[in-house]
């Protein structure tokens, strides 16, 4: 019998060959989850500027209003929306609710995510830009 090496097993969840909506939803959930954790750490690290007084923070805010930062902000919102909306989907499915509709729910989550991100991006650029 051939032993599957550990690293290969460990990366099994990334392998999308032969998978459908559910597998893709799971993969994206994980990637956005990892992204959000990284963001959380960065965010809390940046917040230390608040402890350094008004100048440090307001300088940072000025920089955060640059188009590049606002675009990254949009990316963050995209990730949050997907993760949050799919989180609701997964919670229902995980309790056995709506399983026959899971693929349609996935496309619904995708559509809502894109729509809400577009609205949020518009709002960000008009308010902050």
């Amino acid at each position: 019998m051939r032993e599957v090496p550990r690293w290969k097993r460990a990366s099994g969840w990334i392998d999308l060959r032969g998978r459908r909506e559910g597998g893709l939803a799971f993969l994206l959930m994980r990637l956005t989850g990892i992204g959000l954790v990284i963001y959380l750490f960065l965010h809390l690290y940046v917040l230390r500027l608040l402890a350094q007084g008004p100048e440090a923070w307001d300088a940072f805010i000025a920089m955060a209003k640059s188009p590049l930062f606002l675009a990254l902000d949009g990316l963050l919102i995209l990730g949050i929306l997907y993760h949050a909306l799919n989180g609701v989907r997964v919670t229902l499915l995980g309790l056995g609710i709506g399983v026959p509709h899971q693929a349609r729910l996935f496309w619904g989550v995708m559509a809502l995510t894109l729509l809400m991100t577009a609205i949020a991006a518009y709002a960000i650029f008009t308010i902050a830009g």
Partner: peptide, 25 residues
């Protein structure tokens, strides 16, 4: 993790994903 692939491939309508949900409830 509710990837739902089991129910998608099952040739016999067992629907394991729903079963796992009922089990959790």
């Amino acid at each position: 993790h509710s990837a739902m692939e089991c129910t998608a491939v099952c040739p016999s309508n067992v629907d394991p994903a729903s079963a796992i949900g009922r089990l959790r409830r």
